[in-house]
Nucleic acid binder design. Structure first.
Length: 493
RNA sequence: GGCGAGGUAGCAAAGUGGUAAUGCACUGGUCUGCAAAACCGGUAUGCGCGGGUUCAAUUCCCGCCCUCGCCUCCA
């Protein structure tokens, strides 16, 4: 199968994601800072990366996925103190919550998930190399800074010129920063931060005195540990391009002989109701917030992938409703493609999957079948996906095929092929299908059930007027009646 | 000011040098006592504005307007 073509931030071109070692695509994603629940904006990035990984794997290339946990910085220290917990207890709690959310969103867990605190020695070692090489220097207070002027390629990723780095919005604000007085240059950044009273118990020894590592350093050190000096791809939110990724490149390239990441994937931001979403503004939603409003994680995932990852996406409640309907449509199509065993030798498999679905209580797992290895009739959707992860385009192609195929008229063999293809695509997108609304067993109160029965009786007696009055009564109470030839169903409005 | 993303139907969102996918919503029909579901249709002479290139531009070029993001620690 052809490889995924992905836009590369550094060269600004679409390039194939071919593994450097010819076998496994090794990539790193900047993970969360665990000082609170991640919001859907954070998850947009992780979901996009998850789709990337799934597509690469679906195309036949294994991956090595590394994503860090940032468990030491100003915010984790500050908030752990507020919570009266040790830094470790505090960050582990939020890490756990993060994992729960990731699982709900159907994110494949990274193969390696290193924490910054667990890699202090590696970070110190990298700083030592940088100091020895003349790329870093210790300040009077025991902090260590990277000398940006020592790395000629600085700014290459973000395309910022030297001059521009010194200008900018933060110029005025940083004048009051105490770092200001210890750094040689305004653009130099901290590799090691000297211990401060407010750090409490959170400090580590180093050749330059007690302190803690700077944020940018952890990624460089852990990448070196798990992916080496050269690796395939690095990914994160667009906001990390500068300075975070720029600094990572500087640190890594100046302390090793490698070229660091060979491909950069950046995910655009999520907006909410047309505006920026951020922790500082406070207009953010977590999965829990949305669950309280009745939306499932799968619906959230659908919304998060409904725009191309490189363009900002506006999130609204309406988009969640829209996602719910679209998922229903897919679930119904899937059901329509469900047929009996196509041939005797497959009957065992079919039985298993049927049982699994019942026990799954609502969630079907596409691609559980071993046949779902090719897109089948959805080849166009698959090709669209391979072109820089065009998920919206692929979704459109999937629906287009479903609209054209006369699902009910397909032969069992055709239906199975179509279903396998659909599952292949859904698996690449990481979408699980919800239970079909009608099937969702809701508890109907006895009085409602009685009214509904009354209406059914009236209907059987062809007393349309009475039946309609009862229906309206039920609707007013929030219940809808659906009739079939055999009987009726009551569902919540 | 610099860098970047984007302006496509009511909402969302793809896409292409040859005349606009798809999802939601809306809507007509079939079916149904009526609905719902299902199925079959419809809904942008138009793709921010103004020029230009071309047989042909929403798609290429130039100018302009607007929105959003980043510019030292926010995915």
């Amino acid at each position: 199968m052809p490889a995924l073509k992905l836009h590369d931030t550094l060269t600004r071109t679409d390039r194939e994601t071919t593994p450097l070692d010819g076998k496994t695509l090794r990539f790193y994603c900047c993970g969360p800072t665990v000082y609170g629940p991640a919001h859907i904006g954070n998850f947009r990035t992780f979901v996009a990366q998850d789709v990337m990984r799934r597509v690469v794997e679906a195309s036949g290339t294994p991956t090595l996925h590394v994503r860090n946990i940032t468990d030491v910085d100003d915010k984790t220290i500050r908030d752990s103190q507020k919570a009266g917990q040790s830094l470790l207890d505090f960050t582990q709690g939020w890490t756990q919550k993060f994992h729960i959310d990731c699982a709900a969103l159907n994110l494949l867990p990274p193969h390696i998930e290193p924490s910054a605190v667990a890699h202090i020695p590696q970070q110190v070692a990298m700083i030592e190399k940088l100091v020895a090489g003349g790329h870093a220097y210790a300040a009077a207070d025991g902090s260590v800074y990277f000398r940006v002027s020592s790395f000629k390629d600085y700014g290459k990723l973000s395309h910022l010129e030297d001059r521009e780095l010194r200008l900018g919005a933060s110029e005025a604000a940083s004048a009051t920063d105490r770092d200001e007085y210890t750094k040689d240059s305004l653009t130099d950044f901290a590799l090691w931060k000297a211990r401060k009273p407010e750090d409490g118990e959170n400090f580590w020894p180093s050749p330059w005195g007690e302190g803690r590592p700077g944020w940018h350093l952890e990624c460089s050190a852990m990448i070196l540990e798990y992916l080496g000096e050269d690796f395939d791809l690095h990914s994160g939110g667009v906001d990390l391009i500068f300075p975070h990724h720029e600094n990572e490149i500087a640190q890594s390239c100046c302390s090793t002989h490698g070229h660091f990441a060979h491909h950069w994937m950046h995910v655009a931001h999520l907006m909410v109701d047309g505006g920026k979403m951020s922790k500082s503004i406070g207009n953010l939603y977590t999965l829990e917030d949305l669950a309280k409003r009745g939306y499932s994680a799968v619906e959230v995932r659908y919304v998060l992938i409904s725009g191309h990852y490189s363009a900002t996406l506006n999130f609204t409640m309406h988009s969640l409703d829209s996602a719910r309907q679209a998922l229903q449509k897919l679930a119904k199509a899937d059901k329509a493609l469900e047929r009996g065993p196509p041939s005797p030798q497959h009957s065992a498999d079919s039985d298993n999957s049927a049982t699994g679905q019942k026990e799954g209580a609502g969630l079907r797992s596409p691609a559980a079948g071993s046949e779902a290895r090719a897109p089948g009739p959805f080849a166009e959707a698959w090709e669209t996906l391979l072109h820089d992860l065009n998920v919206p385009g692929a979704m459109g192609a999937i629906f287009g095929v479903l609209n054209k195929l006369k699902l009910a008229a397909l032969s069992p063999e055709e239906a199975t092929a179509a279903r396998n293809g659909l599952h292949f695509m859904l698996n690449a997108l990481g979408l699980t299908l919800p239970a079909i609304a009608d099937e969702a067993a809701t508890d109907v109160p006895a009085d409602i059930q009685a009214l509904a029965q009354q209406r059914w009786d009236a209907k059987q007696a062809k007393d349309w007027a009475a039946a309609d009055i009862l229906r309206k009564q039920l609707e007013a109470s929030g219940w809808l009646i659906k009739d079939s030839k055999e009987g009726f169903t009551v569902i919540a409005k």
